[in-house]
Design a binder for these strands. Sequence first.
DNA 1: GTCTATAGCGCGATAGAC
DNA 2: GTCTATCGCGCTATAGAC
Lengths: 197, 197
Amino acid sequence: MSERRPTIDTKARILDVAQDLIQRHGLNAMSFQDLSDAVGIRKASVHHHFASKDVMVNALLERYVADFDKVVQSISTSRASGKTKLKRFCGLFVETLEAGKHEKSCLCGMLAAEMLSLDDEGLELVRRFMRRSVGHIGEMIEAGVNDGSLAEQNDVAGTAEMVLSTLEGGLLVARCDGGPKQLAGVVGRLVMLLSAG
Amino acid sequence: MSERRPTIDTKARILDVAQDLIQRHGLNAMSFQDLSDAVGIRKASVHHHFASKDVMVNALLERYVADFDKVVQSISTSRASGKTKLKRFCGLFVETLEAGKHEKSCLCGMLAAEMLSLDDEGLELVRRFMRRSVGHIGEMIEAGVNDGSLAEQNDVAGTAEMVLSTLEGGLLVARCDGGPKQLAGVVGRLVMLLSAG
DNA sequence: GTCTATAGCGCGATAGAC
DNA sequence: GTCTATCGCGCTATAGAC
């Protein structure tokens, strides 16, 4: 493996901590003081990297949407069936709930709930995540229809919106009560309903 | 109708405003100052009715869960088919998104996102809402299976969890991007997938 | 039950030294 | 790039008069 630098990029470390805190506590329950405590620098140093909270969360959203896109691309371009791709996509949501990941929510799901606390740019980025996710899901469903693993759909985009809704809501509900096993069950049932045969 | 009192119960008016603010902005974006401004009394007077924010939100949750139960009972005890009951239940979620209702979210959906900001009692009340909702949905699905309007389900409780997830997530996603028409479409598709035939 | 006044704290943000 | 120090504000909550 590559040599490890003694200190990795501070900006990235701040975003890492911010993402974790927002996914668990929400944007309005997270402060620059929390960031500075977790990263190990002073509050003013956080402000050196991100002039304001809006700037910080928008940078985080840019990174998150780009990262998510990359992961989804690796699923989309695999040789698996459409149904398997859809299952893997859903698995990304189930994973965040697992114990080792601190029972986190979806970053954009959390920020969608707190959307009135975002500026215009942040809101647009959350909307972009939603639209891209619906697009990705729609492509996987079409692949599944074509390879025979999923049932015919008269409105693929509408079905994709339903799948994203179930994933975001499943995360929200199961994190509060039910846990990862419940979410896995919900996802399994959803995929079953969309399956061929 | 009954005579109107010049000033209705202040406690109830505070809860009305709190519910509206939390459904739109979230718990952590709402302050006692916001409440006092909207109700037209001073901040200290709000504290006279509710000693702390936790006490206030828990009282709100008690009222909300009870109100929701009443509305659901009126749906459950009607002579409609199970499918129609389920549609009406889903309609409660679609309604909150409509323009006249200020594009609100579900109170317990919002508080589920911010669950780490609740005390033990508040968290338990949100969980109670989720469990009761799953219970209500399950009863409607069973009614629908028995009267032939909905398809047979091998795990009614699991399906009910999926329906609640889709409703909560549909509200979250559509409020952020898509609007009430998208949510209505998602709900229609969900009911269609569960229908007989 | 509502008010004025204030305590005590944490927040986002800035200035300026090193 | 990190630090100390501070500003100005809003927050939850309380004390005590009317």
